[in-house]
Design a binder for these strands. Structure first.
Length: 294
DNA sequence: GCGTCCAGGTCTACC
DNA sequence: GGTAGACCTGGACGC
């Protein structure tokens, strides 16, 4: 297969994007930091074929090296643009942080694009797997999902499973094989609703609902509470929720509250001036060291 | 080796 | 609307 190319937008940073949060550690993503190459197992439209792809940057362009032609090039390119959020307009974000003198490094380092999966369904399942557990357990659950239910690409890597594949196994499978614990019935129900066509998480990307209404829709999915919904909102391009979790709270205490715990209201007040961008501002504020070290 | 705690929370019952 | 208790798992920690 020839190596495919994508034009990157002005100010885009490949490293800041792939390192923006933990998603690059969750299969079927794999990040080689020594060479700054991100691999992902792409699927065709029906989810019946898979191809391993390697994404990297060179001289201002994004390259996609597909292992074979099982997945159409245009589909893999479209997914890559979505994953890296090449079409996101962060002008408003950079303006508001300059105005308030916060995260002044963000524009310079091209920060603010949060890596995401090709489908909202995949991001939704992964988000549920981040709740009430260590990051290590999240990685175990997602790896198990991919290894035990994902279709195999040439070379051995596996894709993230389709809703249909996930709906084909029962709650016991999720408990015993995936190690999803009490999340198991939530994941079964979600997979069945998506596979049957009752629920279309992908529509959240283009929903015209106001953010509070969209958040309510998201929270109708069992296992999705305030944190999970606000995390998903960030991944569909809406940043008015902080998505506070225990890690974000602890980072805020260290950075802005003399290492003392405080109420969420105080955190919300701290970032309220950033309006619709506050969720992205807090994330960049708390992850500055990650981006500084790359 | 064993018990406890907690981590990138959410659900349900109850008030 | 606010709160308490239950819920799986695996790793860290103290004993």
């Amino acid at each position: 297969m020839p190596i495919l190319t994508l034009k990157q937008p002005e100010g885009f940073s490949f490293r800041s994007t792939v390192y923006s949060h933990g998603w690059s550690e969750l299969r079927p993503f794999e990040l080689d930091v020594s060479r700054w190459r991100l691999t992902y197992v792409f699927t065709n439209e029906t989810g019946t074929k898979a191809s391993l792809g390697t994404i990297f940057e060179k001289r201002g362009k994004i390259f996609l090296d597909l292992f074979d032609d099982k997945v159409p090039a245009e589909k893999a390119l479209r997914d890559t643009a979505h994953i890296l959020r090449l079409d996101d307009d962060l002008t408003g974000f950079y303006e508001v942080v300059v105005k308030h003198g916060a995260v002044p490094w963000a524009a310079e380092r091209g920060a603010g694009r949060l890596l995401r999966s090709p489908t909202v369904f995949e991001d939704l399942v992964k988000t549920i797997c981040t709740t009430n557990c260590s990051w290590g357990l999240t990685k175990i659950m997602v790896t198990n999902l991919v290894e035990k239910l994902g279709i195999r690409a040439q070379g051995g890597s596996r894709a993230f499973p389709t809703a249909k594949a996930m709906a084909s196994v029962d709650e016991d499978f999720y408990r015993d094989e995936i190690r999803a614990g009490y999340r198991s019935p939530y994941i079964v129900e979600l997979a069945q609703r998506v596979a049957s066509g009752e629920l279309h998480p992908q529509n959240w990307l283009t929903s015209e609902l106001p953010t509070p209404e969209l958040k309510k829709e998201m929270k109708k999915v069992k296992g999705v509470g305030d944190y999970a919904a606000e995390n998903l909102l960030k991944l569909v391009g809406r940043y008015d929720g902080l998505a506070l979790d225990s890690w974000l709270r602890s980072q805020f205490y260290k950075r802005h509250n003399n290492e003392k715990p405080c109420r969420d209201k105080k955190i919300e007040r701290h970032y309220s001036k950033f309006g619709e961008w506050r969720g992205l501002v807090i994330w960049c504020d708390m992850t500055e060291k990650w981006i500084a070290d790359i």
